[in-house]
Simulated assay, not measured.
Amino acid sequence: MKSITAYKQLNLTHLQTALPQLLETARREQWTYETMVERALGAELDGREQKATARRLKAARIPSKKTVEGFDFSFQPSLSERRIRELADLSFVRTCTNVIFLGPPGTGKTHLSLALANRALAEGHSVLFTTLAELAQSLESASHPGLMRQRLRRYIAPSLLIIDEVGYTRLTAEQAHHFFELVAARYEHGSIILTSNTSFTGWGALLGDEVLATALLDRLLHHAEVIAINGSSYRMKERRTESRTPSTLSDTARHAAGDLPTGV
Rank of each mutant, 00 (worst) to 15 (best):
A133L: 12
K66P: 06
G106Y: 06
H14V: 04
M236I: 04
G47F: 12
H223P: 05
R151F: 03
R28M: 03
F71I: 05
T201C: 10
S247T: 15
Y168R: 03
T131L: 08
T214Y: 06
L152Q: 06
T130Q: 11
Y234N: 10
S159R: 15
P246C: 03
L152V: 09
E49G: 00
F101D: 12
G103F: 06
S91P: 13
S191W: 04
L87G: 03
S250K: 13
R27D: 09
A215I: 06
F71H: 05
S64M: 12
N11W: 01
H222W: 10
L22P: 00
F101V: 13
T201L: 12
V37A: 10
S3E: 15
M148H: 14
A54E: 09
A60F: 07
Q137D: 14
F200D: 11
A54K: 10
A157K: 11
N197Q: 15
L41V: 09
R94H: 15
G108L: 10
P261D: 11
L207A: 09
N98M: 11
T195C: 08
E165V: 09
P145L: 00
S199R: 12
D46K: 14
E188G: 01
I84E: 02
G103S: 05
L79Y: 00
L102W: 07
G106V: 01
T214R: 10
L135F: 05
L15V: 08
L206F: 14
G124M: 07
F71R: 04
Y7V: 00
S141A: 14
L23K: 02
R48I: 09
I4M: 13
A40P: 01
Y33F: 15
K65H: 12
G167K: 04
F101T: 14
G231V: 09
T110G: 03
R56D: 03
A133W: 03
H222I: 12
G103L: 03
Q175A: 09
Q9E: 08
S113F: 00
H125S: 09
L171M: 07
Q9I: 03
P63S: 04
E134K: 13
L160N: 11
H111K: 07
L135V: 08
T248F: 07
P145A: 02
G204A: 10
A213C: 08
S247P: 00
L121C: 05
L221Q: 04
Q16E: 15
I4H: 12
R240S: 14
A60K: 09
A43G: 06
G167A: 08
N230Y: 14
A54Y: 03
L10D: 00
R151A: 04
F180E: 05
F200S: 13
T5C: 04
R56E: 03
F92W: 14
S243V: 11
T17R: 11
G204N: 11
E225P: 00
W203T: 13
N197V: 08
L22H: 02
